[in-house]
């Protein structure tokens, strides 16, 4: 069972000029949970995740990670998260290993200690070859694996992943899903967005369907499906987004 709230948003609002991207969302994600954000394109999922990752400031409301306000102390928030954006742009001219070393040094992690984590993640994602090559020449899926590795190797208590299975082949997507479940069971917290309802069904303890900047439904997969009187999350999504 979840023990205590780690990610918290209270009446968070964010505008881009005339566009209201997030409209007063309140959300709690507990420790040990894998929480999934689902929604149509432009629904506000990425904006909400960027607010938790301190890449955006909310116009109204408050957001905190591990009890730390994202506005008051963004550096402390960053110290306890691992983040992967929806498009995993990396430094083209660094090798995969150099990229991970850069992330380690920016986080103040000594390289020998970082190497331990890198070895574990590289074994999980089978990415020895990528580590030796410049990021410039990596395929989209390989870059995604490297971005995931950069968020995972230092074992942060909170992972914020925007479309983490993007570009991954089915084998690695399956491996990742298993790893994320185990990671949360070990007492960490995972907030992820996805367009693939089967991914959410497979690993998310709870999900929220975001529609036009608001949460249209929230709960376990079964609860959300029941609310829409649907058998699957995919059907529930269509019903909820259709009626919202």
């Amino acid at each position: 069972m979840p023990r205590r709230g780690v990610l918290s948003a209270k009446a968070v609002t964010k505008r881009y000029g005339p566009i209201l991207a997030v409209d007063g969302i309140s959300l709690e994600v507990a420790q040990g949970e894998v929480f999934g954000l689902l929604g149509s394109n432009g629904a506000g999922k990425t904006t909400l995740m960027k607010i938790f990752a301190t890449l955006l400031r909310p116009d109204a409301g408050t957001a905190s990670v591990a009890g730390i306000d994202v506005i008051q102390d963004p550096l402390a928030v960053r110290a306890c998260i691992g983040f992967v954006p929806d498009s995993a742009a990396l430094y083209d001219k660094l090798t995969g290993r150099e990229f991970l070393h850069l992330v380690a040094k920016l986080r103040g992690i000594p390289i020998p200690r970082a190497e331990q984590g890198i070895a574990e993640v590289s074994y999980l994602l089978r990415m020895d070859e990528e580590l030796a090559r410049e990021c410039d020449g990596l395929s989209r899926g390989m870059k995604q694996k490297l971005a995931l590795a950069s968020a995972m190797f230092h074992k942060p208590p909170v992972l914020i992943l925007d479309e983490p299975t993007n570009g991954l082949d089915p084998r690695f997507a399956k491996l990742l899903k298993g790893w994320l479940k185990d990671y949360a069971r070990a007492g960490n917290t995972v907030l992820m967005s996805t367009h693939v309802t089967q991914v959410a069904e497979a690993i998310c303890d709870r999900v929220a369907i975001v529609h036009e900047g608001r949460i249209a439904a929230e709960g376990s997969v079964a609860e959300v499906a029941a609310r829409a009187d649907a058998r699957t999350l995919e059907d529930a999504f269509s019903v909820i987004v259709g009626e919202a």
Partner: peptide, 30 residues
Amino acid sequence: TRPGGSHATREFRLPLMTDAEAAVFDKEVK
């Protein structure tokens, strides 16, 4: 996209730099 080159990992830094400054410096130099 082309196959990228591979390089031996070595670090560049200037004296008096903090670890974070040195990390960015190293990335920029490479």
